[in-house]
């Protein structure tokens, strides 16, 4: 379990990190908490030639209220998000889910930016950001640009972040209504076999996203449009897996995942309709 050799540079600022990414191009990979990247490197599924360590950019570790939005620095660790008073007050679903990622040791190292930039469909935080209708802020040679979460996840472990860009901030709208996170797994520390997030948004709509139900983190589009058309939670949940092609693996068959999605979305929608959260 020893990674292939690589070279290492520690970035002292975002500008420094971007310069190193520019210098090393496709050979470079950003290292934040490393809890998605190191396992891949140990299995040699990832063999970057250069690691650019952004883990000490303390200026990107924050949770701030900015008007109706909450801004989260990309280097904010899961544990810091879990206990953030701002997050607990303004986006409690995000604080709650941050406390459900992995186990304590993972939450002490893993960062929200790393989790989202990794783009793993089995991760919890990308799904929450989708359900919150969030925006991802990336910095690069052309300056900062904002990417809607619905356009961010482009394929399996692929995102809209370009090789010379870096995710620096996650922005989500404050919520006042109900929310629910349903995670089905066998052991506390495992990834969700399937997960569902439902959030009552400020505009009156209910947004629903799914964990581990396709190649990317995704919104449950059929459920959302059924709800918009006046369907009950049970009716909307019955179409949760419509059009989705979840993976089959050692934990669950595709059919079982589709079944789980329907059950978990129903539970989540019932929670939200009862104003839970």
């Amino acid at each position: 379990m020893i990674p292939a050799t690589f070279d290492y540079r520690r970035a002292d600022s975002v500008a420094d990190a971007l310069a190193l990414l520019h210098e090393y191009g496709d050979e470079a990979k950003l290292l934040a908490g490393g809890h998605s990247l190191l396992p891949l490197m140990k299995l040699r599924l990832a063999t970057p030639q250069m690691l650019v360590d952004v883990g000490r950019l303390g200026q990107l570790s924050y949770v701030r209220q900015e008007g109706d939005e909450v801004a989260i620095g990309a280097l904010t660790r899961h544990r810091d998000l879990e206990v953030s008073e701002v997050a607990r007050h303004s986006v409690p679903v995000l604080a709650h889910v941050a406390g459900q990622v992995g186990d304590p040791q993972v939450r002490h190292r893993g960062t929200i930016g790393g989790s989202i930039a990794h783009g793993d469909p089995a991760s919890d935080l990308p799904a929450v950001v989708l359900a919150l209708g969030g925006t991802l802020v990336v910095d690069g040679p052309g300056g900062r640009r904002e990417i809607p979460s619905t356009e961010f996840f482009t394929g399996f472990l692929e995102t809209a972040v370009r090789p010379d860009e870096m995710l620096v901030e996650i922005r989500v709208a404050s919520t006042a209504g109900g929310w629910s996170f349903q995670k089905f797994n066998r052991r506390a520390q495992d990834w969700a076999i399937v997960g569902a997030v439902a959030v009552a948004a400020a505009d009156g709509a209910t947004r629903v996203s799914l964990v581990h139900m396709g190649a990317t983190p995704l919104r449950a589009a059929a459920t959302e449009s059924a709800l918009a058309g006046g369907a009950t939670p049970a009716e909307a949940a019955a179409v949760a897996a419509e059009g989705l092609e979840p993976p089959s693996d050692a934990n669950a068959s595709r059919e079982y995942r589709r079944h789980l999605a329907e059950v978990l979305v129903r539970r989540a929608l019932e929670d939200v309709s009862l104003g839970h959260g």
Binding site: Y8, P39, D53, D103, Q105, V106, H108, R109
Partner: peptide, 26 residues
């Protein structure tokens, strides 16, 4: 050695972390 068992847990600046998932340079 890949972040599951927790046998390698140490305190890093006071926080419990898996030392198999941290490079010494970090």
């Amino acid at each position: 050695e890949h972040g599951v068992c927790g046998a390698c847990t140490v305190l890093l600046d006071g926080e419990a972390v898996r030392s198999c998932l941290v490079f010494a340079v970090q």
